[in-house]
Amino acid sequence: MSLFHLFLKSVFVDNMIFAYFLGMCSYLAVSKTVKTSAGLGLAVTFVLVVTVPVNYLINKYLLAPGALAWISPRLATLDLSFLTYILFIAIIAAIVQILEMVIETFTPSLYSALGIFLPLIAVNCAILGCSLFMQERGFANVGEAAVFGLGSGLGWLLAIVAIAAIREKLRYSKIPKGLQGIGISFIITGLMGIAFMAFMGIKL
């Protein structure tokens, strides 16, 4: 599968929200206006592009069965994969923290746009989920992992901007009382998910 195919597949077919429900909490909580949701979407994409390749390297040279062979042949039989969760989440939390500091120092304008969302992202399931999917699918090299991260991030951005636009319009519609707010957002997301399933038939 070429990189471009992988990219398209991770944006549309394996969309983080519509196919896997990852990152639903912030997706529902922040999608009230298009502007803020675009900011959060960008921050998520940004963090995914950095964390997925880093976690790929961690997995390849530290966690996978026999991965430690590059240190010494005696370690080749070691399997550290049970440490996956703790290492991945620690890496993600650390990278988010570092990114926040770097962005704040070098590009204050970007920081003021993304700033408030960055701390939220460490506990966004889409980030950890993307790294775990990366591990499960076994990509061939760092490039593929990075493209997968970029595609998933953009897919997430697309989904949150789309629902924010719909919710902005929803303010003018008459919704049954018990369904207002979160209830109708769930149902709309479900319907959007059904629409996105059309992409599943596409063979890439």
Binding site: F21, K177, L179, I182, G183, I184, G190, G193, I194, M197
Partner: peptide, 21 residues
């Protein structure tokens, strides 16, 4: 199919909200 989970939970929310109200 996965999207139906969202619709079912939307309906659960609806019933729950109308009962509480």
């Amino acid at each position: 199919l996965p999207p139906m989970a969202l619709i079912v939970i939307g309906v659960v929310l609806w019933i729950n909200n109308s009962k509480t109200e």
